[in-house]
Design a protein around this nucleic acid. Sequence first.
DNA 1: TAAAGCAACGCAAACGTTTTCGTGTTGACA
DNA 2: TGTCAACACGAAAACGTTTGCGTTGCTTTA
Lengths: 346, 346
Amino acid sequence: MKKKITLKQIARELDVSISTVSKALRNSIEISEDTRQKVQAFAKFYNYRPNNIALSLKNRKTKTIGIIIPEIVHHFFSKVISGIEAVANKRGYNVIVGLSNESFSKEVINMEMLANGSIDGFILSIAKETLQQQDYHHFTETINQGMPIVMFDRVVNEINCDKVIVDDFLGAKKAVRKLIDNGCKNIAIITTKDYVSVGRLRTQGYLEALEDHKINPKSNLILKVDDQLLSEDHLDSLEKEIEVLFKNSKKLDGIFAVNELYALTAMKVARKLDLKIPEDIQIIGFTDGVLSKHAVPSLTTVSQHGQKIGEKAAELLINNLEREDEEDVYETVIIETELIERNSTK
Amino acid sequence: MKKKITLKQIARELDVSISTVSKALRNSIEISEDTRQKVQAFAKFYNYRPNNIALSLKNRKTKTIGIIIPEIVHHFFSKVISGIEAVANKRGYNVIVGLSNESFSKEVINMEMLANGSIDGFILSIAKETLQQQDYHHFTETINQGMPIVMFDRVVNEINCDKVIVDDFLGAKKAVRKLIDNGCKNIAIITTKDYVSVGRLRTQGYLEALEDHKINPKSNLILKVDDQLLSEDHLDSLEKEIEVLFKNSKKLDGIFAVNELYALTAMKVARKLDLKIPEDIQIIGFTDGVLSKHAVPSLTTVSQHGQKIGEKAAELLINNLEREDEEDVYETVIIETELIERNSTK
DNA sequence: TAAAGCAACGCAAACGTTTTCGTGTTGACA
DNA sequence: TGTCAACACGAAAACGTTTGCGTTGCTTTA
């Protein structure tokens, strides 16, 4: 069992100084061809690799990106991670993941753990609880300490940093317009409470699409679900709420849901009420996950391109990290959404 | 913008030595009550936090676990990560994620990057390409260097380390037995090529369940799908293969699929052929993901408890890391599978 | 032949900690 | 008054690197 070997050990074995070894390995011209080869051969034989931690300490850079997301068991977020990881890896960075579980305190603790030297910068999506409490001191503090942050998806304007978002507003608008174009007269929306920025924006898009077509929004067609956790347990109550929505509006012929699960549950209710999709009622979701693709009928949906979001976020962060001049100009990149038409619309 | 503050800076400001500051902060009795308070107040005001990297270098421990998985956009793997993260966090560890994308070289590179001091140990699931090539030198090398590994799900016997697996064999057997008990006479299996250990084991379970009931396996009822990538693009060809399976055996009345996607595709084909589920044909899948739960009809499936797997793996690793005595006794923990009965079986 | 140049290497600082081992200053005690 | 402990603190090493600069010993040049 040969343990990791260090410069010091090589130096001792070859009876030279540590600096000589280091320089030899980095092909410095200060070192004679002879010793260089000797050292390199020895290092290769013992499979020497410089210790990352020591390098990090010396360079004051860890070449590691910290990701904080609300949950990982979620198609969208894992897509984003996948995107981040791809460009991070390509540019020589590692990725360290912290989960907030939608909890404010876990978000803070996780960030504090990572901010103390473990990483060079953050990519994060804000926990719901944090959004509700509107307490963003941990973000401003880390930024003040000189550690850059890139936010994605769930962002807040108050914080001055790079952001990557999808055009929730426009995406929703496009979706609802599609329903209108397809002949829907009574379109409902199943959305979240307003403190979730993406939910709010999508609701606005819904409203504006209606307005553009001179349709008056009706309050009984707007269902704002309170998903403190959106835990799977709440599925039943969600179903009931949606059922009420259906009952309250017999002429319902279109539904725009702000996420997959809401859309699928709506489909379930429709099926229960013997409504044919898309003949009797058309449904569009948001977020292009596996569920949409494999649902029956497959779900027309607004894709947010999670992978692209992650890639872009990583690019922004790394560019920032490797920028020489210290000008703080922050960008907000908008990833375009795409309406993927499947079989839940005509 | 107050940058991160160090011991040295505190020492300079308060006109004491670095060691005094360090001791004062750690409440050493060597330091007078007076200076202790002064230092602690100052540190608190400037929000001092020890630099993790420096600590890692000093302690030769990073308190970080490296995870290498084939892909993250996958319900099972993200569940496992979630489990790992939960116990890791509880025990003061962080989690750093590397993706192999099922590629041998990416697996090797990722492991090498992390093994040079960045982490204390690995939790990993082997890439398909690695399984195919049967080249495990990177595992043995890291273990030889004194860095512990815990493998989960996709493991190999050749490597001597802790392992966490589900009882694929028994899980499959239970599922097939269920089909038999439910009256199925012609049960097909949709599985992977044999180099994927879990696929092979599940196939064996299928065979033994048949044998136990004196049913002769028929080769035309065994479909071994070659999913070099299992990419979403291959969905069409997968569908066609399954269709052939159906056509080749008109009396088919039960299907056991080794993953969700195979099961769902089978359901799709059945629907296409106007077969009623579960009346005409019953289907059971493996892996309890979102797809199974929300499919129509919902899919009876063998749950592997990904979260539990992750938790157990993290426990094994951390226990190993924090064990005083250096005895290398490796454990293989088997997480029991559970048959979750839904509506795709009678 | 002396000054200068050069090749090849080592020293030491630095990154930020923790910790062992001094060391100087008190006060008490004989 | 001299000795010794207790107290409070500092110096320095260590973790593993990189790098600017100093130091050899030798060869070249005028």
